[in-house]
């Protein structure tokens, strides 16, 4: 399989806090990668560096062979790396439909500049409606985004990343704030959409059941380092991971917890 995203030797610190230290990750096309780690381990920082929100103090990030380290979030999005956020970033005064239409409009306005992907949405409203159904948001279509329940906000946040046609989707804690029995429903919908559009996925997750069920590879972060990287079964069983990630932070897999 071809490597689509390649991060080499990333470093980042905030004052005395090391948020990334010698991070090396190569992600293959169509992989589903889980990022785990206790609070403050550096998971979000990693996503922030990949999407250009933070500049690493050392190291490089390549996407499809191209160096994207110096690029701004906007340019990286256009190349096809799109993300959701730990705290949903919505257009709160606008309707759910309009939230997504903004993205459709941006893609359309960019035209051929929108990466190498087919950018045209022939019928924007229809395309968005299809997407809303896919994410189970159909009944919220005309509701104001700022007034949605938390779980729905999370879904919309992810849909907003999907609507701008990603090649890689980065999700920051997609199931946090979602009730235990709805987590799998949410992830099923997201993964279905992802598979349909052949999108590579990285997602940060505190619930080990979710990690075990959906990923084919897991990265464990601890104090800015990656302390384990491999198949879910191996990583989740790793002694260090059990001690620093799962044990210290959460009860054994099954009783999910998050900050």
């Amino acid at each position: 399989m071809a490597v689509i995203l390649d991060a080499r030797g990333l470093e980042k610190s905030f004052g005395a806090v090391t948020a990334a230290s010698n991070i090396n990750v190569a992600v293959e096309q169509d992989a589903v990668v889980g990022l785990i780690g206790s609070n403050g381990a550096g998971k979000t920082t990693f996503l922030n560096m990949v999407t250009g929100y933070l500049k690493p103090s050392a190291g490089t990030i390549h996407f499809e062979g191209r160096d994207i380290t110096p690029l701004a979030p906007r340019e990286i999005t256009r190349l096809g790396i799109c993300r959701s956020f730990q705290i949903p970033q919505l257009f709160n005064t606008m309707t759910v439909l309009d939230n997504l239409l903004v993205g459709v409009g941006i893609v359309a306005a960019a035209g051929s500049k929108w990466g190498a992907r087919n950018s045209a949405y022939d019928d924007p409203v229809k395309a968005v409606d299809t997407m809303l159904d896919q994410f189970g948001l159909g009944s919220y279509r005309n509701r104001q985004a700022g007034l949605l329940p938390e779980g729905t906000r999370k879904l919309l946040d992810i849909a907003m990343a999907m609507v701008v046609r990603p090649r890689i989707l980065l999700l920051d804690e997609p199931t946090s704030g979602v009730s235990a029995d709805e987590k799998f429903v949410l992830m099923d919908m997201v993964m279905a959409a992802v598979k349909e559009h052949k999108v590579t996925v990285l997602f940060v997750e505190h619930d080990m059941d979710v990690v075990a069920r959906y990923t084919d590879r897991v990265l464990a972060f601890y104090e800015g380092r990656i302390i384990a990287d491999g198949a879910p079964a191996t990583v989740l069983d790793d002694v260090e991971v059990r001690r620093f990630v799962i044990g210290s932070h959460a009860a054994p897999a099954g009783a999910a917890s998050h900050a």
Binding site: C82, R83, Q89, T93, M94, V102, G105, A109, M160, V163
Partner: peptide
Amino acid sequence: HQGRLAGAIKDNELRVEYMGAS
């Protein structure tokens, strides 16, 4: 589209950038 984009900028500039618009 420009009108909707203006509203989006008012609501959340970060997301607008993360949707690929300047």
